[in-house]
């Protein structure tokens, strides 16, 4: 409430419950889900030139998803009691879905990676098709964690899972582009010139796809903020917090400008043929998505509740 004649003499505000561990966890699951989806697309299309991308992403997805839950366990106040999640589950809590998804998905990802690396096409394709919904839910549920924490106006929106999924795709493609470009630069010397050419073309195509995904992400963010600004007073406060408040430099400066607009210009603009520009854009995109997780998780909790 905006009342200049009000002075708060005493009130209690407890410490932020969810801190950077959680933002980081969201970032890693996003990377994992994004790279898994790309891997499955590469495997399903089955073209020869997609092979290296399919392999890079197949190994990235389970590794990233094994790092991610470490953040969660480190965040627990009682880390040794994490097994309570599986014994005393509660089906109305999104964290319960998460604890089972986070168990099933890496196992599935490892089996899928073995199939891809041993060139068993049919089982890889079947596992891939089964795995995409799993990958989407393993990241989509994190959006529900925020959306169902009803108290926080910035989180409590139906767009939250979709925003998380789309930004996961963006960061996943970004990471894959960086690694594929590193392979192209340093570990691809034995390949024929035609192969190198087709690899470069593939990286450029991936980057272009990333730029289109960024556009979708920006659309979702703009629509979310528009609705926040026109909804009830808490939502308005949340919208203003990220537009003009303490989180504006990180939201507008890092997430929107550095993490979305600049990469889009680099990838689609006159520098679109340059490998350096593409790699810089992909790194920026990942910084932007990390900033987005930070703004959402920490920013959402900074609006006082009492």
């Amino acid at each position: 409430m905006d009342n200049t004649d009000v002075n708060v003499v005493y009130s209690v505000q407890h410490q932020l419950p969810l801190v950077m561990y959680i933002a980081q966890y969201f970032f890693f699951t996003g990377l994992s889900a994004g790279s898994f989806v790309i891997s499955v697309v590469a495997t399903l299309l089955g073209r020869r030139e997609f092979k290296p991308i399919g392999k890079i992403t197949a190994i990235l997805a389970p590794i990233l998803l094994m790092i991610a839950p470490l953040n969660l366990i480190a965040d627990l106040e009682q880390p040794l009691r994490f097994w309570h999640l599986f014994i005393f589950y509660n089906w109305t809590s999104p964290i319960t879905y998460g604890s089972f998804l986070l168990t099933a998905y890496p196992i599935m990802g490892i089996i899928y990676a073995i199939m891809v690396f041993t060139n068993r096409q049919t089982p890889a394709k079947i596992l891939g098709i089964l795995g995409v919904p799993l990958a989407i839910s393993v990241h989509g549920y994190t959006g529900f964690i925020l959306a169902l924490a009803k108290a926080r106006a910035l989180w409590n929106t139906a767009a939250m899972p979709t925003i998380f999924l789309v930004s996961a795709m963006v960061s996943g493609i970004g990471l894959v582009v960086v690694i594929a470009a590193a392979r192209w630069k340093w570990f691809d010397k034995d390949a024929t010139p035609e192969q190198r050419q087709s690899d470069k073309k593939l990286i450029t195509q991936l980057a272009t796809f990333m730029a289109y995904t960024i556009m979708l992400d920006l659309f979702l963010i703009v629509s979310d903020i528009l609705v926040l600004l026109t909804a009830h007073s808490d939502a308005y406060q949340a919208g203003m917090l990220i537009l003009t408040g303490n989180f504006a430099p990180i939201f507008l400066g890092v997430e929107i400008f550095l993490g979305s607009i600049v990469p889009m210009v680099l990838v689609l603009g006159p520098t679109r043929k340059s490998m350096k520009a593409i790699v810089i854009a992909s790194i920026l995109v990942n910084i932007g998505v990390y900033a987005m997780r930070f703004v959402m998780v920490i920013g959402g909790q900074t609006i006082p509740l009492s």
């Binding site: 419950p17 969810l18 009682q78 309570h84 964290i95 909790q301």
Partner: peptide, 10 residues
Amino acid sequence: CIGCKYCIAS
């Protein structure tokens, strides 16, 4: 309680 703090956030 495992101290996940989700209840505090909610």
